[in-house]
Amino acid sequence: MSALRRSLPVAAWGAFLLALAVVALIFRPDSQTVVLGFGLAVSVIVAGGSVLRARRGRRAAGDVEYTPDLSVATVVAAVGVSLAIAGAEAGTWLVAIGLGVAVAGVGGLVRELRAERRERTRVRTR
């Protein structure tokens, strides 16, 4: 599927939103309406454009999947971040715990991703 066709839904949608933002101008809108309306349209068009420019996905139909069944590191990272944020209210002690857990989670993720890359290289060079 060509990049142009891939980005078609998002680009068409962005054009529609831009038209609606332009229509708003007829009605002497307040500044918040203009900023939000045009900001939205521009964001969608830029996003559609980056889909256009993005590399073709590495995943072809016949590839073997490398994502492991479990990713404890992801859970740890997400819970750690949440605890740290909750700590903004509960107290610095929780922020510290949360950040510690989050760092452990991110560390675990790095290990998981490195293992995946090694596995992929190993399979490819077989």
């Binding site: 994502t67 859970v75 997400a78 993720l109």
Partner: peptide
């Protein structure tokens, strides 16, 4: 597979934790 399975899993946990908070 879904695109970004770990992201989806992480999002699930953020949803749960956000609700509990």
């Amino acid at each position: 597979e879904i695109a970004g399975p770990r992201w989806a899993l992480g999002g699930l946990w953020l949803d749960v934790m956000g609700g509990l908070i």
